[in-house]
């Protein structure tokens, strides 16, 4: 009997949470994701995309992972006095209702140690975690450009 009521409560909790989870899943939207094909054997590659925050509150990207890379960091190229400097972005905040674009020469995903060689035409899947605990799955095609 105890087990049955526990099961009932778990079901009830999941049912209550379901609309919240469904609403959250549409908050961050990833578009035009692509990975730049690199010379063979290079331990790092660049990834680019645009992320739109469809919610009414600011959301930060806390983590990006992919089964195709050992680790991923967010970086930004800064041009200062003719010098190109690359810095890790500790927190990428996407204001409510806005889009942040990751593109060559600006913010980008730094993709470390591809698990296997990637060529133009390949597709890579990613998982992005937001500060509001949502997770977004997206895929990116590898391109030479």
């Amino acid at each position: 009997m105890k087990l049955l009521s526990a099961f009932f409560y778990v079901c009830l909790t999941l049912l209550t949470l379901q609309p919240v989870l469904a609403a959250d899943s549409a908050t961050l939207q990833v578009e035009n994701a692509w990975v730049r094909e690199g010379p063979p054997g290079m331990p790092m590659m660049g990834g680019f995309m645009s992320v739109t925050n469809n919610s009414t509150g600011d959301v930060s990207i806390t983590r990006i992972s992919s089964p195709a890379f050992k680790s991923i960091e967010l970086h930004e190229t800064i041009m200062q006095d003719g010098m190109a400097k690359m810095r890790e972005v500790s927190e990428l905040r996407i204001p409510a209702g806005q889009t942040v674009v990751l593109e060559p020469g600006g913010k980008h995903m730094m993709l470390f140690n591809p698990v296997k060689p990637l060529k133009a035409g390949d597709t890579v899947t990613f998982q992005l975690s937001g500060s509001d605990d949502q997770r977004v799955e997206f895929s990116a095609s590898v391109k030479r450009r």
């Binding site: 690199g38 331990p43 190229t77 190109a84 690359m86 020469g105």
Partner: peptide, 8 residues
């Protein structure tokens, strides 16, 4: 060569 953005 370990430069994933500006160099390529």
């Amino acid at each position: 060569t370990h430069c994933p953005d500006v160099c390529p």
